[in-house]
């Protein structure tokens, strides 16, 4: 059976739940870039991101029947991706960044907004500055400005309180501005 853009994500999941592989193909083509981008924002490693993309999609295939419709399909899927990364880090014995203190006050002087504004328009500079941030800060900026999610949706994906999302976004933006301003000064 051919699937089109008119088929909602929920419809595809329902068909996948009864074993329709064509529905899974349509779902993969629709969401591959989104999941891959998200994984890349967390991992900063295209090979691992490709591996985990496969794992996430396989998990979606296995769990299609269990999708309860309490959240949007994309929120549910990115939640699976988040968990896959956490499991990957645990297997690697890597720091999970769960000890990131989002309530720490930043006493360093604020960045020069004009310098940051000039630098943020350059894709290469932005990419380089994002890479200096911690994975949770990169991830949260991705969820806000690429996925365009609100704080409640992000809290649901990351399984953290909304207040933590709020403070993490605030710190991530400030850190990014400082990196951008520094990049601008050194160019």
């Amino acid at each position: 059976m051919e699937y089109s853009v008119q088929d909602s994500d929920e419809q595809l999941l329902r068909t996948m739940a009864v074993g329709d592989t064509e529905a899974m193909t349509a779902f993969y083509r629709r969401h591959e870039t989104r999941v891959y981008r998200y994984l890349l924002s967390k991992l900063n490693d295209s090979f691992v991101a490709a591996d985990l993309l496969n794992e996430v999609m396989l998990e979606v295939w296995r769990s299609a029947a269990r999708f309860a419709g309490r959240a949007k399909v994309t929120t549910w899927m990115l939640g699976i991706a988040h968990n896959k990364v956490m499991t990957h880090w645990r297997k690697q014995g890597a720091r999970e960044f769960t000890d990131l203190d989002d309530n720490l006050t930043d006493d360093t002087p604020a960045a020069d907004l004009e310098q940051a504004l000039a630098a943020v328009k350059d894709g290469q500079v932005l990419r380089a500055c994002m890479q200096t941030l911690s994975p949770p800060h990169r991830e949260i900026l991705h969820l806000v400005f690429f996925e365009e999610l609100d704080y409640a949706e992000i809290a649901s994906i990351l399984q953290i309180p909304e207040g933590t999302v709020k403070s993490r976004v605030y710190h991530a933006k400030n850190l990014l501005k400082k990196q951008l301003a520094r990049a601008m000064r050194s160019s």
Partner: peptide
């Protein structure tokens, strides 16, 4: 501007090989 640059960031997912 941040949103605009993030949205325009090119990315090459695995595509058909990944599928």
């Amino acid at each position: 501007a941040l949103r605009q640059t993030v949205q325009n960031e090119p990315v090459t997912p695995p595509g058909e090989l990944g599928l």
